[in-house]
Design a protein around this nucleic acid. Structure first.
Lengths: 366, 366
DNA sequence: CTGTTAGCGCTTTCAC
DNA sequence: GTGAAAGCGCTAACAG
């Protein structure tokens, strides 16, 4: 009468016994069939099937001092942009032995550190984290993580290890330049919550306007009193990106600068809200007012008028991050520490003043 | 000269030695401080901090034959609806010792079975799965999982263990009845990819129209040749829910039934596309044409005109699922096997024919 | 409240 | 190719 603490499920020893081989042979057959002779491999496969054997991952991790967990830290789960990144990551993992463990930092550095520490307990095979604005402690944890670390969705001269993303500054500047070329002169910047990447976009916007001699701080709202806004409506801290918010922010911006003739919105959802606000007021887009967003989500092209935006390659970033991780785990060299996946300025009807895609409406408003 | 295989990081034994106590005392102090005297606890805490000790989760899992992993299976990561569910789940997990491991089934039963088997290797503490349409093998795995299993986002008389959701049939019926009451008579059903929950909505739609003597199969498109549609555009199998698709499907539906005067869309994104199509054609919403969606995402209320929809409680479903799981893990009894969180029909301008929210436009079209 | 002992199931090491 | 033995780091059991 033993005092085993097992839960009764078959172990590798059971399989070994049934197949008439040693446990280690089963272990090898499972990890790399080519290490075992055909005959034994067949016997083992049969035994596994008959017993319904399922390897215990905890035991494997413990014995091999390395797990199959890839930790992923994103600042938001509901924003489409990170959902796309995650999809790319899961697609990149595919049928490998790796698993994803996602942490949602909610744009909170303390939470990020907590999640990072939590992840480290798993002795992860790799880490994928969003952005470059970690806390000092977080940065230190990443550097001592003892596994490949990929930063994503931004660029930096000094990545922990490898970074895959694009320049938000350049992207913001490019779209602003497009608006200027389209003939708009009083171009606003509409944004709710600002994170470090938003700030990059804003700096690009400012630079483009300054170079054209058109910059006016009145046209920028990100300093707007968001806490007050949140209190006013039913918005909570995590809902700074809704169309309703976009409508509200555009209205506020117009109050401060009634002659504003276009907005560059920090994201597409806000841009959609801006469009709705224009429609509700009867302001003609793009003739009277230009609208541009950021990220190029699905609805931008389908909107009426179609909305200009900056297409970012989220899926690719997630996917490439995993591919790079797998390469490093396989011991292949990887000298590209900084990978710029770029972006595309999608010029659509909402910023096309020539009117070739003007809407059939009378716009007797204003 | 030992032949230890360790990676050099401190273990519980190191902490114990430094604190001058037994390893098991450290273990207890870490899991439940109240089990250890104040004096020892303090010594232990100090040692932990000085050594930078991080518990090895694999060892814990192996020794205790139960992990802290909660497996979550969702059919999509990009649809907002499941992103909301996930947010609820993560919020429900909070600061507990539990971890989430998400699997994306992509509405593929084989993939679901594969992911389930994969999850089971972790000896999960609990499982949360979407819907009730598992494969026979999947169902069996869930029943033998040896941990609490919560199904979500649907209802069933025969859940594996516990189910938290709402009736898609009832929701579809309720919205259709609203459209009928609003005065629409030729109400279409617009849908791309149909999953089992979509079918529930459709059956509610059919029932409502049959009861009113208004049902006409011509007005239903879900049988539409989606594969052909996908080929025609740049849509792939996972993009059956885009505004562009909504536009296309509405156009198709109108071709088959030119007198259609409203659509109930299988989801909000399609409804938004329908609105864009109407705007592009100059069809007045809601006067000439009514539009309703499903899920009530943020943009529905902000659209112009605001769009009617069925509000579903995704966050709550995810959150409650975790709470129920935690209860069961704590050994508390739970007799409610079936929890209906309900839904709300949000009646907005897009289905309000009385015109009090009519749009300022001339609609000289059609 | 604290410690000793003996596993948890798998993989590494080293020999055959 | 294959196997025996010795861990991996932690915790359930039982005593004290």
């Amino acid at each position: 009468m033993s005092k085993r603490r097992t839960d009764g499920r078959p172990t590798i020893a059971d399989v070994a016994q049934r197949a008439g081989v040693g446990a280690i042979t089963v272990s090898r057959a499972l990890r790399d069939p080519s290490l075992v002779s055909d005959m034994l491999r067949e016997k083992i496969d049969t035994a596994v099937r008959e017993l319904g054997y399922v390897p215990n991952l905890a035991a494997r991790t413990l014995a091999s001092t390395r797990s199959d967990v890839v930790g992923v830290l994103v600042p938001s789960l509901t924003q489409h942009i990170f959902a796309d990144v995650l999809r790319g990551i899961y697609d990149g993992i595919g049928q490998t032995r790796l698993h994803i463990q996602v942490g949602n930092t909610r744009y909170d550095l303390d939470e990020e550190d907590r999640l990072l520490a939590e992840l480290l307990r798993h002795k992860p095979a790799g880490l994928i984290v969003s952005g470059i604005d970690q806390s000092a402690a977080g940065r230190r944890m990443l550097e001592k993580a003892n596994c490949p670390v990929i930063q994503i969705m931004d660029l930096s001269d000094n990545p922990v290890n490898k970074i895959i993303g694009f320049s938000h500054h350049d992207a913001g500047k490019a779209m602003t330049q497009h608006l200027i070329e389209a003939g708009y002169r009083r171009i606003g910047f509409l944004s709710g919550w600002m994170n470090s990447r938003s700030k990059g976009r804003l700096s690009g916007y400012v630079e483009a306007l300054e170079e054209a001699g058109l910059y006016d701080p009145q046209l920028v709202n990100p300093a707007g009193d968001l806490e007050a806004l949140a209190l006013r409506g039913s918005w909570d801290r995590h809902q700074y990106s809704t169309p309703a918010m976009g409508r509200q922010l555009l209205a506020d911006l117009w109050k401060a600068a009634p002659d504003m003739d276009a907005v560059f919105c920090n994201n597409d959802v806000l841009a959609l809200g801006a469009l709705f606000e224009c429609q509700a007021r009867g302001v003609a887009v793009p003739r009277e007012f230009g609208i541009a967003g950021f990220n190029d989500e699905d609805f931008m092209e389908a909107a009426s008028p179609s909305l200009s935006s900056v297409r970012t390659h989220r899926w690719k970033v997630g996917h490439d991050a995993v591919i790079a991780l797998r390469r490093q785990l396989d011991g292949e060299p990887d000298d590209e520490r900084i990978v710029d996946v770029g972006f595309d300025v999608m010029k659509r009807a909402s910023t096309d003043r020539t009117g070739k895609s003007a809407q059939p409406r009378d716009a007797a408003a204003e």
